[in-house]
Design a protein around this nucleic acid. Structure first.
Lengths: 112, 112
DNA sequence: TAACGTTATTCATCAACAGGAATAACGCTT
DNA sequence: AAGCGTTATTCCTGTTGATGAATAACGTTA
């Protein structure tokens, strides 16, 4: 008989007023935006369609009290996307709870 | 400005060999099976199609070392479905980690 | 052996989602 | 004023998943 590997898995996200606000995908997108300074390049770099990325940013900005991303069209380079300080804070906070979650899952897996 | 309610949410499940084994829906199904002694009645009672419930039981029995549910067709009453002692143990274990998870989420929400 | 209510399985259909294509809008640069 | 590369938006289409319908298989009971 084959040895079976059992583990407790899960997903974690943040809701505002019951709506999806932040998950691992969106956080990764925010990180890529900071890295590239462009929404289009950020989307492409993580294999995401531009449209989906755009709607994600729209949704985050609409839900939060302050926008996480500033979008500028036109101008030098055609436009740009910048993470606000508020956006950076959310990324940091999400990374923290994400790490706690990994620890939680590991502990639960051990005693299953 | 409207007050916004922010909270950390999540889903939890158990995998065996990387495949979905137990989640909240399946556990509820197991409880209903124990309650009704019939897979069909269990499915209907929780607004699930019989087929989906059947495949769920199939999947669980196939993945675990021992079956969680015994299915008998024909005979008195047309057939029956019974939770095994192994199945009962999984339900209990899942309830435990599920409670821990609620505590975890509450704590994370408080400090977000 | 006919009836019964369940388990077991296949099929067709419909809706929701994902994704790409195409294009407009924008503002700085030259 | 033309060019550039981005942001902003609409449209269409293929795919996938969910769902119900229909029916076979089964074994006890009367």
């Amino acid at each position: 008989m084959k040895k079976k590997k059992t583990e407790v898995a899960g997903r974690l996200w943040v809701e505002i007023d019951g709506e999806n606000f932040l998950g691992s995908g969106r956080v990764e997108l925010l990180e890529k935006i900071e890295m590239h300074g462009s929404l289009r390049k950020a989307a492409i770099s993580m294999g995401l369609s531009y449209r989906k990325a755009y709607y994600a940013v729209r949704s985050m900005n609409d839900l939060a009290p302050d926008p996480l991303v500033e979008l500028h069209q036109g101008g030098k380079g055609g436009g740009c996307a910048k993470l606000t300080s508020s956006g950076r804070k959310y990324v940091l906070r999400y990374r923290e709870i994400s790490q706690e979650f990994v620890i939680f899952l590991t502990r639960q897996s051990d005693v299953f």
